[in-house]
Design a protein around this nucleic acid. Structure first.
Length: 426
RNA sequence: GGAAGAGUGGCAGAGCUGGUUGAAUGCACCGGUCUUGAAAACCGGCGUGCGAGAGAUCGUACCGGGGGUUCGAAUCCCUCCUCUUCCGCCA
Protein backbone atom coordinates (compact mmCIF):
# COMPACT_ATOMS: atom_id res chain seq x y z
CA UNK A 1 0.00 0.00 0.00
CA UNK A 2 1.26 3.40 -0.95
CA UNK A 3 2.29 5.55 1.97
CA UNK A 4 0.47 8.85 2.01
CA UNK A 5 3.62 10.55 3.23
CA UNK A 6 5.42 9.32 0.12
CA UNK A 7 2.59 10.59 -2.03
CA UNK A 8 2.82 13.99 -0.36
CA UNK A 9 6.59 14.25 -0.46
CA UNK A 10 7.30 12.81 -3.88
CA UNK A 11 4.11 12.99 -5.84
CA UNK A 12 5.94 13.50 -9.14
CA UNK A 13 7.90 10.33 -8.72
CA UNK A 14 4.78 8.42 -7.83
CA UNK A 15 3.08 9.71 -10.96
CA UNK A 16 6.11 8.94 -13.08
CA UNK A 17 6.14 5.40 -11.75
CA UNK A 18 2.45 4.76 -12.22
CA UNK A 19 2.68 5.98 -15.79
CA UNK A 20 5.02 3.09 -16.45
CA UNK A 21 2.14 0.85 -15.54
CA UNK A 22 0.15 2.62 -18.21
CA UNK A 23 -1.87 4.80 -15.86
CA UNK A 24 -3.72 7.59 -17.63
CA UNK A 25 -4.42 11.12 -16.43
CA UNK A 26 -7.92 9.99 -15.60
CA UNK A 27 -6.64 7.22 -13.35
CA UNK A 28 -4.08 9.46 -11.70
CA UNK A 29 -6.86 11.66 -10.35
CA UNK A 30 -7.16 9.17 -7.53
CA UNK A 31 -3.91 10.52 -6.08
CA UNK A 32 -5.41 13.97 -5.60
CA UNK A 33 -8.54 12.43 -4.18
CA UNK A 34 -6.44 10.66 -1.59
CA UNK A 35 -4.58 13.79 -0.58
CA UNK A 36 -7.77 15.80 -0.44
CA UNK A 37 -9.57 13.22 1.68
CA UNK A 38 -6.57 13.00 3.96
CA UNK A 39 -6.51 16.78 4.39
CA UNK A 40 -10.13 16.65 5.50
CA UNK A 41 -9.41 13.79 7.81
CA UNK A 42 -6.64 15.72 9.52
CA UNK A 43 -8.80 18.79 9.89
CA UNK A 44 -11.61 16.85 11.49
CA UNK A 45 -9.30 15.02 13.81
CA UNK A 46 -7.63 18.18 15.04
CA UNK A 47 -11.03 19.69 15.82
CA UNK A 48 -12.30 16.52 17.40
CA UNK A 49 -9.25 16.01 19.60
CA UNK A 50 -9.88 19.45 20.99
CA UNK A 51 -13.47 18.55 21.86
CA UNK A 52 -12.38 15.30 23.43
CA UNK A 53 -9.85 17.18 25.50
CA UNK A 54 -12.63 19.45 26.76
CA UNK A 55 -14.82 16.52 27.60
CA UNK A 56 -12.04 14.79 29.50
CA UNK A 57 -11.28 17.96 31.43
CA UNK A 58 -14.88 18.48 32.50
CA UNK A 59 -15.32 14.85 33.42
CA UNK A 60 -12.32 15.10 35.67
CA UNK A 61 -13.79 18.19 37.28
CA UNK A 62 -17.01 16.34 37.94
CA UNK A 63 -15.03 13.69 39.75
CA UNK A 64 -13.43 16.38 41.90
CA UNK A 65 -16.77 18.05 42.61
CA UNK A 66 -18.17 14.77 43.89
CA UNK A 67 -15.16 14.31 46.11
CA UNK A 68 -15.51 17.78 47.54
CA UNK A 69 -19.19 17.26 48.13
CA UNK A 70 -20.31 19.91 45.69
CA UNK A 71 -22.91 17.74 44.05
CA UNK A 72 -25.06 20.76 43.22
CA UNK A 73 -22.50 22.04 40.70
CA UNK A 74 -22.34 18.73 38.93
CA UNK A 75 -25.54 19.20 37.00
CA UNK A 76 -24.36 22.22 35.00
CA UNK A 77 -21.09 20.49 34.17
CA UNK A 78 -22.98 17.49 32.88
CA UNK A 79 -25.00 19.71 30.59
CA UNK A 80 -21.84 21.15 29.10
CA UNK A 81 -20.59 17.71 28.22
CA UNK A 82 -23.96 16.82 26.76
CA UNK A 83 -23.61 19.39 24.00
CA UNK A 84 -20.04 18.33 23.31
CA UNK A 85 -21.05 14.74 22.95
CA UNK A 86 -23.35 15.17 19.99
CA UNK A 87 -20.69 17.15 18.20
CA UNK A 88 -18.09 14.52 18.97
CA UNK A 89 -20.16 11.64 17.73
CA UNK A 90 -20.83 13.46 14.49
CA UNK A 91 -17.13 14.15 14.03
CA UNK A 92 -16.27 10.57 14.74
CA UNK A 93 -18.76 9.37 12.23
CA UNK A 94 -17.31 11.44 9.41
CA UNK A 95 -13.82 10.68 10.61
CA UNK A 96 -14.32 6.96 10.21
CA UNK A 97 -15.99 7.57 6.87
CA UNK A 98 -12.95 9.45 5.63
CA UNK A 99 -10.58 6.83 6.97
CA UNK A 100 -12.50 4.16 5.11
CA UNK A 101 -12.65 6.19 1.92
CA UNK A 102 -8.91 6.81 2.02
CA UNK A 103 -8.26 3.15 2.73
CA UNK A 104 -10.37 2.05 -0.21
CA UNK A 105 -8.67 4.53 -2.52
CA UNK A 106 -5.25 3.39 -1.40
CA UNK A 107 -6.17 -0.23 -2.02
CA UNK A 108 -6.64 0.67 -5.67
CA UNK A 109 -3.15 2.07 -6.14
CA UNK A 110 -0.55 -0.51 -7.14
CA UNK A 111 3.06 -0.33 -6.08
CA UNK A 112 5.20 2.36 -7.67
CA UNK A 113 7.63 0.68 -10.05
CA UNK A 114 11.34 0.96 -9.35
CA UNK A 115 13.30 3.26 -11.73
CA UNK A 116 14.83 0.19 -13.36
CA UNK A 117 11.43 -1.02 -14.53
CA UNK A 118 10.97 -0.46 -18.27
CA UNK A 119 7.77 1.20 -19.40
CA UNK A 120 5.46 -0.98 -21.41
CA UNK A 121 2.09 -2.59 -21.63
CA UNK A 122 2.44 -6.33 -22.18
CA UNK A 123 4.93 -9.13 -21.82
CA UNK A 124 6.33 -8.16 -25.22
CA UNK A 125 7.81 -5.09 -23.56
CA UNK A 126 9.69 -7.03 -20.91
CA UNK A 127 13.40 -6.51 -20.95
CA UNK A 128 15.55 -9.53 -21.68
CA UNK A 129 18.39 -9.09 -19.18
CA UNK A 130 19.96 -12.47 -19.72
CA UNK A 131 19.42 -14.62 -22.76
CA UNK A 132 20.31 -18.27 -23.05
CA UNK A 133 23.71 -18.35 -24.74
CA UNK A 134 24.02 -22.11 -24.98
CA UNK A 135 22.46 -24.55 -27.37
CA UNK A 136 18.76 -25.15 -27.21
CA UNK A 137 17.93 -28.83 -26.95
CA UNK A 138 17.67 -30.31 -30.38
CA UNK A 139 15.04 -32.97 -30.15
CA UNK A 140 14.07 -35.60 -32.65
CA UNK A 141 11.26 -34.90 -35.06
CA UNK A 142 8.91 -37.13 -33.15
CA UNK A 143 9.62 -35.48 -29.77
CA UNK A 144 6.53 -35.35 -27.61
CA UNK A 145 5.03 -32.58 -25.48
CA UNK A 146 4.88 -33.43 -21.80
CA UNK A 147 1.19 -34.33 -21.80
CA UNK A 148 1.93 -37.10 -24.28
CA UNK A 149 5.03 -38.19 -22.40
CA UNK A 150 2.92 -38.32 -19.27
CA UNK A 151 0.66 -40.87 -20.92
CA UNK A 152 3.47 -42.81 -22.48
CA UNK A 153 5.21 -43.42 -19.15
CA UNK A 154 2.06 -43.33 -16.99
CA UNK A 155 3.47 -40.72 -14.64
CA UNK A 156 0.85 -38.03 -14.82
CA UNK A 157 -2.88 -38.38 -15.38
CA UNK A 158 -5.01 -35.38 -16.25
CA UNK A 159 -8.23 -37.27 -16.87
CA UNK A 160 -8.05 -38.96 -13.52
CA UNK A 161 -7.79 -35.54 -11.90
CA UNK A 162 -10.98 -34.56 -13.71
CA UNK A 163 -12.71 -37.56 -12.24
CA UNK A 164 -11.55 -36.86 -8.72
CA UNK A 165 -11.83 -33.08 -8.71
CA UNK A 166 -12.09 -31.31 -12.03
CA UNK A 167 -9.98 -29.86 -14.80
CA UNK A 168 -6.62 -28.49 -13.73
CA UNK A 169 -5.97 -30.92 -10.89
CA UNK A 170 -3.47 -33.39 -12.32
CA UNK A 171 -2.62 -36.65 -10.60
CA UNK A 172 1.03 -37.63 -10.46
CA UNK A 173 1.75 -41.34 -10.39
CA UNK A 174 4.64 -43.72 -10.08
CA UNK A 175 7.91 -42.13 -11.18
CA UNK A 176 6.06 -38.89 -11.76
CA UNK A 177 5.08 -38.68 -8.12
CA UNK A 178 8.60 -39.61 -7.08
CA UNK A 179 10.07 -36.93 -9.33
CA UNK A 180 7.73 -34.41 -7.79
CA UNK A 181 8.81 -35.31 -4.28
CA UNK A 182 12.47 -35.35 -5.32
CA UNK A 183 12.25 -31.83 -6.66
CA UNK A 184 10.58 -30.54 -3.49
CA UNK A 185 13.29 -32.03 -1.31
CA UNK A 186 16.05 -30.83 -3.58
CA UNK A 187 14.72 -27.27 -3.58
CA UNK A 188 14.23 -27.24 0.18
CA UNK A 189 17.69 -28.59 0.87
CA UNK A 190 19.27 -26.03 -1.42
CA UNK A 191 17.44 -23.20 0.33
CA UNK A 192 18.33 -24.45 3.78
CA UNK A 193 21.97 -24.59 2.71
CA UNK A 194 21.66 -21.00 1.58
CA UNK A 195 20.55 -19.97 5.05
CA UNK A 196 16.78 -19.99 4.73
CA UNK A 197 14.63 -21.14 7.65
CA UNK A 198 12.21 -23.84 6.59
CA UNK A 199 8.55 -23.11 7.31
CA UNK A 200 5.59 -25.42 6.97
CA UNK A 201 2.71 -22.93 7.03
CA UNK A 202 -1.08 -23.30 7.01
CA UNK A 203 -2.60 -23.67 3.56
CA UNK A 204 -5.66 -21.68 4.53
CA UNK A 205 -5.38 -18.06 5.53
CA UNK A 206 -7.71 -15.44 6.95
CA UNK A 207 -8.68 -12.18 5.33
CA UNK A 208 -6.09 -10.13 7.20
CA UNK A 209 -3.27 -12.22 5.80
CA UNK A 210 -4.65 -11.86 2.30
CA UNK A 211 -4.70 -8.11 2.70
CA UNK A 212 -1.19 -8.13 4.12
CA UNK A 213 0.46 -9.39 0.98
CA UNK A 214 -1.84 -7.56 -1.41
CA UNK A 215 -3.86 -10.55 -2.55
CA UNK A 216 -6.96 -8.90 -1.09
CA UNK A 217 -9.15 -7.01 -1.49
CA UNK A 218 -8.34 -6.75 -5.16
CA UNK A 219 -7.92 -10.26 -6.39
CA UNK A 220 -10.52 -12.32 -4.58
CA UNK A 221 -11.32 -13.94 -7.89
CA UNK A 222 -7.93 -15.62 -8.01
CA UNK A 223 -8.35 -17.39 -4.70
CA UNK A 224 -10.51 -20.25 -3.57
CA UNK A 225 -12.70 -19.08 -0.72
CA UNK A 226 -14.31 -21.11 2.06
CA UNK A 227 -17.37 -19.12 2.83
CA UNK A 228 -18.40 -21.14 5.84
CA UNK A 229 -15.18 -20.43 7.64
CA UNK A 230 -14.22 -17.17 5.99
CA UNK A 231 -10.85 -18.55 4.90
CA UNK A 232 -8.89 -18.55 1.66
CA UNK A 233 -6.81 -21.31 0.11
CA UNK A 234 -3.34 -19.91 -0.43
CA UNK A 235 -2.37 -19.00 -4.00
CA UNK A 236 1.29 -19.17 -2.93
CA UNK A 237 3.30 -19.72 0.24
CA UNK A 238 4.15 -16.03 0.04
CA UNK A 239 0.87 -15.26 1.78
CA UNK A 240 1.19 -17.26 5.01
CA UNK A 241 4.97 -16.90 5.19
CA UNK A 242 5.18 -13.15 4.70
CA UNK A 243 2.43 -12.74 7.28
CA UNK A 244 4.69 -14.28 9.89
CA UNK A 245 6.00 -10.75 10.25
CA UNK A 246 2.67 -8.92 10.16
CA UNK A 247 2.33 -6.37 12.92
CA UNK A 248 5.90 -6.72 14.07
CA UNK A 249 8.50 -4.16 14.94
CA UNK A 250 11.72 -6.00 14.34
CA UNK A 251 15.28 -5.18 15.30
CA UNK A 252 17.35 -3.95 12.39
CA UNK A 253 20.20 -6.25 13.40
CA UNK A 254 17.86 -9.20 12.79
CA UNK A 255 17.71 -8.45 9.06
CA UNK A 256 17.52 -10.28 6.78
CA UNK A 257 14.68 -12.64 7.63
CA UNK A 258 14.97 -15.59 5.27
CA UNK A 259 12.19 -18.14 4.98
CA UNK A 260 11.60 -21.02 2.63
CA UNK A 261 8.42 -23.03 2.40
CA UNK A 262 7.09 -25.81 0.28
CA UNK A 263 3.34 -25.67 -0.23
CA UNK A 264 0.76 -26.61 -2.77
CA UNK A 265 -0.65 -23.50 -4.44
CA UNK A 266 -4.27 -23.06 -5.43
CA UNK A 267 -5.35 -20.76 -8.24
CA UNK A 268 -8.79 -20.31 -9.66
CA UNK A 269 -7.24 -18.72 -12.76
CA UNK A 270 -10.21 -17.26 -14.53
CA UNK A 271 -9.19 -16.88 -18.11
CA UNK A 272 -7.68 -18.23 -21.20
CA UNK A 273 -7.96 -21.54 -23.00
CA UNK A 274 -6.02 -23.31 -25.69
CA UNK A 275 -2.45 -24.41 -25.99
CA UNK A 276 -1.22 -21.93 -23.38
CA UNK A 277 -3.11 -23.75 -20.70
CA UNK A 278 -2.63 -27.26 -21.89
CA UNK A 279 -1.00 -29.89 -19.72
CA UNK A 280 0.97 -28.54 -16.81
CA UNK A 281 1.31 -25.06 -18.23
CA UNK A 282 -1.59 -23.79 -16.19
CA UNK A 283 -3.31 -25.76 -13.44
CA UNK A 284 -5.47 -25.03 -10.41
CA UNK A 285 -3.21 -26.82 -7.99
CA UNK A 286 0.55 -27.06 -8.21
CA UNK A 287 3.48 -27.38 -5.88
CA UNK A 288 5.98 -24.68 -5.26
CA UNK A 289 8.94 -23.95 -3.05
CA UNK A 290 8.97 -20.28 -2.23
CA UNK A 291 11.70 -18.13 -0.72
CA UNK A 292 10.71 -15.03 1.23
CA UNK A 293 12.89 -12.35 2.74
CA UNK A 294 12.37 -9.23 4.81
CA UNK A 295 15.24 -6.82 4.60
CA UNK A 296 16.46 -3.35 5.54
CA UNK A 297 15.33 -0.88 2.86
CA UNK A 298 18.89 0.12 2.07
CA UNK A 299 19.84 -3.44 1.25
CA UNK A 300 16.74 -4.86 -0.36
CA UNK A 301 17.83 -4.44 -3.95
CA UNK A 302 21.12 -6.18 -3.27
CA UNK A 303 19.04 -8.94 -1.75
CA UNK A 304 16.88 -9.07 -4.85
CA UNK A 305 19.97 -9.59 -6.99
CA UNK A 306 21.16 -12.27 -4.63
CA UNK A 307 17.81 -14.07 -4.86
CA UNK A 308 17.92 -13.85 -8.64
CA UNK A 309 21.31 -15.50 -8.76
CA UNK A 310 20.15 -18.10 -6.28
CA UNK A 311 17.32 -19.11 -8.62
CA UNK A 312 19.67 -18.98 -11.58
CA UNK A 313 21.98 -21.51 -9.98
CA UNK A 314 19.07 -23.84 -9.30
CA UNK A 315 18.21 -23.86 -12.98
CA UNK A 316 21.83 -24.45 -13.88
CA UNK A 317 21.94 -27.42 -11.54
CA UNK A 318 18.85 -28.80 -13.22
CA UNK A 319 20.59 -28.30 -16.57
CA UNK A 320 17.65 -26.41 -18.01
CA UNK A 321 18.01 -23.67 -20.63
CA UNK A 322 16.68 -20.47 -19.12
CA UNK A 323 16.50 -16.76 -19.68
CA UNK A 324 15.84 -13.85 -17.34
CA UNK A 325 13.46 -10.99 -17.99
CA UNK A 326 12.90 -7.75 -16.15
CA UNK A 327 9.18 -7.13 -16.23
CA UNK A 328 7.85 -3.93 -17.71
CA UNK A 329 5.39 -1.72 -15.85
CA UNK A 330 2.37 -3.22 -17.50
CA UNK A 331 3.34 -6.79 -16.69
CA UNK A 332 4.32 -6.10 -13.09
CA UNK A 333 2.02 -7.53 -10.44
CA UNK A 334 0.00 -5.17 -8.28
CA UNK A 335 2.28 -5.27 -5.25
CA UNK A 336 5.68 -5.47 -6.90
CA UNK A 337 8.19 -2.67 -7.42
CA UNK A 338 10.64 -4.72 -9.44
CA UNK A 339 10.31 -8.26 -10.76
CA UNK A 340 12.56 -10.67 -12.60
CA UNK A 341 10.94 -13.59 -14.35
CA UNK A 342 12.73 -16.80 -15.19
CA UNK A 343 11.64 -18.73 -18.22
CA UNK A 344 12.66 -22.22 -19.09
CA UNK A 345 12.68 -23.50 -22.63
CA UNK A 346 10.25 -26.25 -23.28
CA UNK A 347 11.73 -28.00 -26.28
CA UNK A 348 8.78 -29.96 -27.49
CA UNK A 349 6.34 -27.08 -27.15
CA UNK A 350 9.02 -24.79 -28.58
CA UNK A 351 8.19 -22.06 -26.13
CA UNK A 352 9.54 -20.39 -23.03
CA UNK A 353 7.63 -21.17 -19.83
CA UNK A 354 7.67 -18.96 -16.76
CA UNK A 355 9.00 -20.98 -13.85
CA UNK A 356 9.96 -18.32 -11.37
CA UNK A 357 9.17 -14.78 -10.47
CA UNK A 358 11.44 -12.93 -8.08
CA UNK A 359 10.20 -9.62 -6.75
CA UNK A 360 11.04 -6.78 -4.44
CA UNK A 361 7.88 -5.30 -2.96
CA UNK A 362 9.85 -2.64 -1.14
CA UNK A 363 7.57 -1.09 1.48
CA UNK A 364 4.31 -1.90 -0.25
CA UNK A 365 3.50 -5.10 1.58
CA UNK A 366 5.24 -3.91 4.74
CA UNK A 367 2.89 -0.94 4.87
CA UNK A 368 -0.10 -3.25 4.77
CA UNK A 369 1.50 -5.72 7.11
CA UNK A 370 2.67 -3.01 9.49
CA UNK A 371 6.12 -4.57 9.38
CA UNK A 372 8.54 -2.01 10.76
CA UNK A 373 11.91 -1.69 12.40
CA UNK A 374 13.66 0.87 14.56
CA UNK A 375 16.37 2.63 12.60
CA UNK A 376 19.60 3.95 14.08
CA UNK A 377 17.88 7.21 15.06
CA UNK A 378 15.17 5.37 16.94
CA UNK A 379 12.38 6.13 14.51
CA UNK A 380 10.19 3.55 12.90
CA UNK A 381 10.51 2.68 9.23
CA UNK A 382 8.91 0.14 6.96
CA UNK A 383 10.94 -2.94 6.16
CA UNK A 384 11.17 -4.23 2.63
CA UNK A 385 9.79 -7.62 1.63
CA UNK A 386 10.86 -9.85 -1.22
CA UNK A 387 10.00 -13.24 -2.53
CA UNK A 388 10.64 -15.63 -5.35
CA UNK A 389 9.70 -19.06 -6.54
CA UNK A 390 12.51 -21.52 -6.11
CA UNK A 391 10.86 -23.12 -7.89
CA UNK A 392 7.38 -23.83 -9.25
CA UNK A 393 7.21 -27.55 -9.86
CA UNK A 394 4.60 -28.13 -12.52
CA UNK A 395 6.34 -26.25 -15.28
CA UNK A 396 9.78 -27.44 -14.24
CA UNK A 397 8.50 -30.96 -14.61
CA UNK A 398 7.03 -30.13 -17.99
CA UNK A 399 10.39 -28.81 -19.16
CA UNK A 400 12.38 -31.67 -17.64
CA UNK A 401 10.19 -34.26 -19.29
CA UNK A 402 10.31 -32.64 -22.69
CA UNK A 403 13.94 -31.59 -22.81
CA UNK A 404 15.35 -34.82 -21.46
CA UNK A 405 13.40 -37.30 -23.54
CA UNK A 406 15.41 -39.93 -25.36
CA UNK A 407 14.41 -43.07 -27.19
CA UNK A 408 15.39 -45.02 -24.04
CA UNK A 409 13.39 -42.91 -21.63
CA UNK A 410 13.54 -39.59 -19.82
CA UNK A 411 16.87 -38.75 -18.25
CA UNK A 412 16.96 -37.42 -14.69
CA UNK A 413 19.42 -34.55 -14.07
CA UNK A 414 22.48 -35.53 -12.06
CA UNK A 415 21.56 -33.48 -8.95
CA UNK A 416 18.20 -35.18 -8.65
CA UNK A 417 19.28 -38.78 -8.92
CA UNK A 418 19.98 -39.21 -5.24
CA UNK A 419 16.53 -37.77 -4.55
CA UNK A 420 14.58 -39.81 -7.08
CA UNK A 421 16.41 -43.04 -6.59
CA UNK A 422 16.40 -43.70 -10.34
CA UNK A 423 18.20 -42.08 -13.25
CA UNK A 424 15.70 -42.68 -15.99
CA UNK A 425 11.93 -42.60 -16.35
CA UNK A 426 10.87 -45.53 -18.45
C1' G B 1 -19.77 -29.63 19.41
C1' G B 2 -21.02 -29.03 25.22
C1' A B 3 -19.35 -26.98 30.24
C1' A B 4 -16.22 -23.82 33.28
C1' G B 5 -12.31 -20.21 33.67
C1' A B 6 -9.19 -16.58 31.40
C1' G B 7 -7.35 -12.74 27.76
C1' U B 8 -3.57 -6.04 30.65
C1' G B 9 2.87 -2.98 28.04
C1' G B 10 8.96 -7.42 25.29
C1' C B 11 7.81 -11.12 29.35
C1' A B 12 5.69 -12.03 34.26
C1' G B 13 1.87 -9.88 36.96
C1' A B 14 -1.41 -5.99 40.01
C1' G B 15 -5.76 -3.18 39.11
C1' C B 16 -11.53 -5.20 37.53
C1' U B 17 -17.05 -2.57 44.61
C1' G B 18 -16.24 2.97 37.52
C1' G B 19 -13.06 9.18 38.65
C1' U B 20 -4.59 12.19 38.43
C1' U B 21 -4.38 4.22 35.90
C1' G B 22 -1.30 4.57 29.69
C1' A B 23 -1.79 1.66 33.64
C1' A B 24 1.59 -0.55 40.28
C1' U B 25 5.51 -4.10 40.95
C1' G B 26 9.30 -7.50 39.17
C1' C B 27 12.30 -9.20 35.05
C1' A B 28 14.39 -7.92 30.44
C1' C B 29 16.36 -3.73 27.68
C1' C B 30 18.98 1.32 27.11
C1' G B 31 21.89 5.50 29.47
C1' G B 32 24.64 6.99 33.84
C1' U B 33 27.34 6.61 38.83
C1' C B 34 30.65 3.16 41.13
C1' U B 35 34.73 -0.51 39.22
C1' U B 36 41.28 -1.76 36.20
C1' G B 37 37.08 -4.42 33.62
C1' A B 38 32.67 -7.08 34.63
C1' A B 39 28.94 -8.31 38.19
C1' A B 40 26.18 -6.34 42.23
C1' A B 41 24.17 -1.84 44.10
C1' C B 42 22.19 2.94 43.15
C1' C B 43 20.04 6.95 39.74
C1' G B 44 17.41 7.87 35.22
C1' G B 45 14.97 6.19 30.76
C1' C B 46 12.02 2.55 28.40
C1' G B 47 4.62 0.92 24.22
C1' U B 48 1.89 1.93 19.50
C1' G B 49 -1.21 4.75 16.00
C1' C B 50 -3.11 9.53 14.70
C1' G B 51 -3.15 14.93 15.00
C1' A B 52 -0.85 19.97 16.20
C1' G B 53 4.15 22.26 16.37
C1' A B 54 10.42 24.44 13.30
C1' G B 55 11.39 22.04 17.87
C1' A B 56 11.07 21.14 23.09
C1' U B 57 6.59 19.31 23.60
C1' C B 58 1.31 19.04 23.74
C1' G B 59 -3.49 16.76 22.51
C1' U B 60 -6.04 12.27 21.37
C1' A B 61 -6.99 7.02 20.89
C1' C B 62 -5.59 2.11 22.28
C1' C B 63 -5.69 -2.81 28.63
C1' G B 64 -8.03 -9.64 22.63
C1' G B 65 -11.71 -7.35 18.24
C1' G B 66 -16.39 -4.72 17.64
C1' G B 67 -20.64 -2.34 19.86
C1' G B 68 -23.31 -0.26 24.22
C1' U B 69 -24.31 2.14 29.25
C1' U B 70 -22.18 6.67 31.73
C1' C B 71 -20.45 13.42 32.73
C1' G B 72 -16.37 9.70 32.98
C1' A B 73 -14.77 2.48 31.57
C1' A B 74 -8.93 -1.65 31.73
C1' U B 75 -12.99 -1.73 35.34
C1' C B 76 -20.37 -2.53 34.12
C1' C B 77 -23.47 -4.78 29.76
C1' C B 78 -23.84 -7.25 24.73
C1' U B 79 -21.35 -9.78 20.83
C1' C B 80 -17.38 -12.09 18.26
C1' C B 81 -12.42 -14.20 18.49
C1' U B 82 -8.53 -16.74 21.02
C1' C B 83 -6.37 -19.58 25.02
C1' U B 84 -6.62 -23.10 29.35
C1' U B 85 -9.13 -27.22 31.84
C1' C B 86 -13.00 -31.05 31.69
C1' C B 87 -16.42 -33.93 28.39
C1' G B 88 -17.65 -35.57 23.35
C1' C B 89 -15.78 -36.56 18.35
C1' C B 90 -11.56 -37.51 15.36
C1' A B 91 -6.50 -37.90 11.60
Amino acid sequence: MLQISRLRNAKNLVIEGLRKRGWTDGELIILDQIIEADDYRKKIQTANDELLAQRNRISKEIGQLFKNGKADEVQSAKLKVETLKSEISENEKSLSEFVETIQNLLYKVPNVPHPKVPAGKTDKDNLLVKDWDGELPNLAQDALPHWDLAKKYDILDFELGVKITGAGFPVFRKQGARLQRALINFFLDEAINAGYEEIAPPLLVNEQSGIGTGSLPDKEGQMYYMEKDDLYLIPTAEVPVTNILRNEIVKSEDFPFKFVAYTPCFRREAGSYGSDVKGLNRVHQFDKVEIVQAQHPDLSHETLDEMVSYVEILLQKLELPYRILRLCGGDLTFASALTYDFEVYSAAQKKWLEVSSVSNFEGFQANRLKLRFNDEFGSKRLAHTLNGSALALARIIAALLENNQTPEGIKIPEVLKSYTGFDMIK
